[in-house]
Computed example of a mutant assay.
Amino acid sequence: MAVLKLLRAPSKYVQGKGALLKFYEETKNLGDSYLFICSNSGYKMCQEKIEKSFEGSNGKLHFEIFGGISSNGEISRMRKIIQDEKINVVVGVGGGSAIDTAKACAYYENLPVAIIPTVCATDAPCTGLSVIYNDDGTFDTYIFYPKNPDAVLVDSEIIAKAPAKFLVAGMGDALGTYFEARACVRTDSPSLENGGISLSAMALCELCYKTLLKCGYQAKKACENNLVTPALESIIEANTYLSGVGADNGGLAVAHSVYNGFTALEECEATMHGSIVAYGTITQLLIENAPKEEIKEVMDFCHSVGLPITLKEMGVTDVKRVMIAAEKACAPGESIHNMAGDVTPDQLYDALLAADLLGQDYL
């Protein structure tokens, strides 16, 4: 039987300058006792606006700063607060780890979850999954949820005040969305939600890529100067909604496997997720033998916003070590196996080095 097509998204997505001042208004249907699981910076940037949004309401608020990693221990600690204080809405405030912790707590306690991202570095806010770590920081598991978040609120003013490197990393993550989904469609591979890929999902993925090309450079400039412009608003939506809902319903291929592979190299520990995904996207295009105009378009984009197009820019100076990453990227169960004709570690290694040569030429 053919795989049934499937499309999932957050129930509500709200974005704009000062959106947090409307937080209570937009989420009051979810409950009246809120736990805000915050990163340090998330608390500093958002607490005042959130409290203001509750003025004159009977909503109860509890702010809790979490330990920095979406670990089993932190999830247990937050669940105890939820039970003790009879919380009925969980909110994640911060980057990917705070968001993943909030999603996990809400799932285990069977409560609605709202998300307030403070950076646009990944597509965590809109997706129906979390990455969970052991208490020592090593990877434990992915949790796939039966639904996506109930509400996602993005205050553009807060994103504009965050360092521009996060916005750029988010563009790198978003860059893979269209090309990975396109590869999955070719091989009839399922999406991250384990369904067939709908026309609507592909349209979101394609719009994500077109928006990056059109607005990426201007958005980076605006963010570097803490300005909220139409281009920045467009990139916030591309990084958060189009990429998140697109990847969830589109599927992954080489670009994200390359990221997983490069996590094995300690020299890449400081390199952001989106930077490696961008390099993986160029690598994927070489494996597909994509038209040279398309490869150039992607490299032009990466270079214009400051995403890596060489191994050196990712921190890799010894090319022999790339084989370690290539082998890990091709492990059983990796999304690279969604490619037509499959990809071996040798083929991936050659493509990763070929991408580096093209990048060196380009520079």
Rank of each mutant, 00 (worst) to 15 (best):
T310P: 05
P230Q: 01
H62L: 14
P291H: 11
Y145F: 11
A325K: 08
G73W: 10
H62I: 15
V14N: 14
T263W: 10
G176D: 02
V343I: 13
I99Y: 09
F144M: 10
G341K: 13
V228W: 05
I81Q: 12
Q83V: 15
N148R: 00
G274K: 10
S257Q: 09
G274L: 01
L35W: 04
A255H: 11
T317M: 07
V258T: 12
S200K: 09
L285I: 05
P149S: 08
M171E: 03
A201G: 00
K28E: 15
S156D: 06
T211M: 01
H62D: 09
A290S: 14
E157L: 02
Q83Y: 05
T141S: 15
G315N: 08
G333H: 05
I116W: 01
F63I: 03
P146Y: 07
L265G: 07
C208T: 13
V298N: 09
M202E: 00
D173T: 05
Y241K: 10
E237W: 04
V93D: 15
E334D: 03
V119A: 04
N289K: 15
Y178C: 03
S189M: 14
Y241G: 01
T211L: 03
P230E: 08
E269Q: 14
T240C: 11
D342P: 02
K49D: 12
L307F: 08
P146T: 02
Y34E: 07
M78G: 10
N58L: 09
A102I: 13
L286R: 04
S39V: 07
E233G: 02
G95Q: 15
G92K: 12
G94Y: 08
D173L: 00
H337C: 05
G18A: 10
K60Y: 14
K328F: 08
T187P: 09
K312V: 04
A102H: 08
V119C: 10
Q347C: 06
T240P: 01
P117M: 10
C184L: 00
Y34D: 00
I197W: 12
I132W: 11
K52H: 12
V154E: 04
E55T: 14
R182V: 07
S198K: 09
I75T: 13
L20Q: 14
G68S: 11
C38K: 13
L35Q: 08
G128L: 04
K328P: 01
V119Q: 06
Y24S: 12
E85Y: 03
I132A: 06
S71P: 14
E180I: 01
L212V: 00
G176C: 03
L153P: 04
L30G: 10
L204Q: 06
G68F: 07
I197R: 02
L242K: 03
K5M: 11
M323K: 15
E288F: 08
S130C: 04
Y178P: 00
A203G: 09
I99K: 09
I295M: 07
F179Q: 03
V258Q: 05
V113R: 11
I65V: 15
